[in-house]
Amino acid sequence: MVCLVANSEESPTPAADPSRPWLQLAPDYERARAKEDSLDRLVEWPAQRELLGDVAGRSVLDVGCGNGGKLAELVRDGATASVGVDISGNFLSAPPPGLELIQGDLSELDSVPGLAGRTFDRILFLQSFGYAKDPVRTLQAARAMLTDDGFILLTRTQPIRYAVERSERNGTSLGEEYFSTDEFSYRSGWNDDIILTKRAYTISDLINEFSAAGLWIETALEPQLPAEARRRYPHKQEWMNKHLGILIFKLRPRPGH
């Protein structure tokens, strides 16, 4: 869960709506993602794309799509009748035919205009899941929009990353911080003027949320830098060695749910 403090010099105060920071951070994220050494470009998106497989003729819903750039790539690869939803409304100025971009809140996915009665072959939560007010409810709404053979592709930051950063800052052990339930605050790496407040989570927390939403994990992946990128960007490999990167889950509805 993520909250925003507008004034970085004040003491962080959790906001009621965890999606608020994205309204300011969306343009900063897109600029960071476009950099040559972006881990999204080098690690995350290639791994996500591989797990998606052939999307030709498939409909895709990207929940928390940012500007819609990744979904536009899938449409160019043959995805059809695809929709991107993002609260920021900071969308591509000229999306390709077959791509619809809707401003909406992923926490209210079941009431986003334009989605009622629709189903999708692939539903994506690419680092957006942490902005949901009620993660289980959001996943349940997404599950209800899947076609019979559809699946959800969901990525989250490795929780070890936050535990490492908190243990260094607080002078505590890794285990103490990994299992802590306290909220923690830090300056966004995309915009130093914004302080984010998050609720700590563990890998078991994620698994239990998936189960409560009636989903099972078909595939789990922890992608790493390819050898060529390790040589070219040693500073990124150093970061990965310390913080581990991201978790990717391919989720399908449990029978009977």
Rank of each mutant, 00 (worst) to 15 (best):
F91H: 11
L39K: 06
P95R: 08
P18L: 02
A32M: 13
D86R: 05
P135D: 00
D134P: 05
G84D: 14
G66W: 07
D62C: 00
G130T: 08
L109W: 07
G66K: 09
N90W: 14
L71Q: 09
P113E: 04
L39F: 00
D110S: 14
L101P: 06
L106W: 01
A79P: 04
E30K: 05
L39W: 00
D77W: 04
S19N: 00
L51G: 10
V136G: 09
P27W: 13
L25V: 07
A34K: 07
R31E: 15
L39R: 08
V63T: 00
A81N: 14
R31K: 15
V112E: 00
G104D: 11
V112T: 11
L106F: 12
A94M: 13
D110T: 02
S88W: 13
K35L: 01
G130M: 12
P135M: 03
Q140Y: 03
R41K: 15
K35P: 02
K133H: 06
G68D: 08
R49G: 02
L42N: 00
C65G: 02
D62W: 03
S82N: 09
L51Y: 04
D40M: 00
L52E: 08
D149G: 15
S88D: 13
L25K: 03
R20V: 10
A79M: 03
P96S: 12
L109H: 03
R137M: 06
V112P: 11
A32G: 15
R122N: 04
A47G: 08
E44Q: 02
E100N: 12
L126G: 01
G89A: 05
V55H: 04
S93A: 15
P21F: 06
L109E: 05
A141Y: 06
P96K: 04
L146H: 10
W22D: 05
L146Q: 10
A144H: 11
L126Q: 11
A32H: 15
N67S: 12
T147M: 04
I102H: 02
T119Y: 01
E30M: 09
G68S: 09
D28K: 07
D28A: 14
D28R: 02
L106I: 14
D77P: 01
V43R: 07
